[in-house]
């Protein structure tokens, strides 16, 4: 179910353009809220799938960006949902904790490229101040131009989703919460 501001659109009431996004047995709070405006859902979900989903960049790298961004924006829904996705993408429980700010980032991520990336995410999403000039220069030592573009778009799109999900108070699914409880991540 969605949060208090918006009643989720139940499967029987799913608009025509929203129906392909409803799976048998239910759908995500994101879809069931966006279904109120089917033309927005119709373009938003493919956008999210393209930017957040499988691409030329490794899933682990993308989840670093998504989870770290969500933690900086304090989006409960996205932090919980992507803690679970991050585990599926090969991150350890300790790495997830570090991305969430619960443990040392430096200890959890000794590799230079990942530390650089996390520094870039903090510069883009961790403050309302302008991104400092030259902040991403070091990133280019480890990532190509297309990769920098994709990772920055990923960070920015996650910010959008963080604000949407937080504003509408979308709750993580029971299955996600159950998984996180089992991993000690609740």
């Amino acid at each position: 179910m969605a949060g208090v501001l918006v009643t989720p659109v139940e499967p029987a009431q799913a608009p025509l353009l929203a129906r392909p996004h409803y799976r048998e047995g239910g759908t995500s709070p994101l879809v069931s809220s966006l279904a109120h405006v089917p033309e927005a859902l119709e373009v938003t979900m493919p956008f999210i799938a393209t930017v957040l989903g499988p691409s030329a960049i490794a899933a682990r790298t993308k989840e670093l960006v998504i989870l770290r961004t969500s933690a900086r924006l304090e989006c409960s829904y996205c932090v919980q949902t992507h803690s679970s996705v991050a585990l599926d993408s090969g991150l350890s429980v300790a790495e997830v904790r570090a991305l969430r700010g619960e443990e040392s980032l430096e200890e959890a991520f000794p590799a230079e490229d990942e530390r650089m990336l996390l520094g870039w995410v903090d510069a883009v999403a961790g403050t309302v101040d302008p991104v400092p000039a030259g902040a991403g220069v070091e990133l280019r030592e480890h990532f190509s131009e297309p990769e920098v573009v994709e990772l920055t778009l990923l960070c920015a799109a996650t910010v959008m989703l963080n604000r949407y999900c937080t504003a509408l108070e979308l709750p993580a699914s029971p299955a996600t919460l159950q998984r996180l409880a089992a991993e000690g991540l609740l």
Binding site: Q13, A14, P15, L17, V37, P38
Partner: peptide
């Protein structure tokens, strides 16, 4: 009912 809703626009 929104099952036959096409767009809000």
């Amino acid at each position: 009912d929104t099952d036959l809703l096409v767009t809000r626009t």
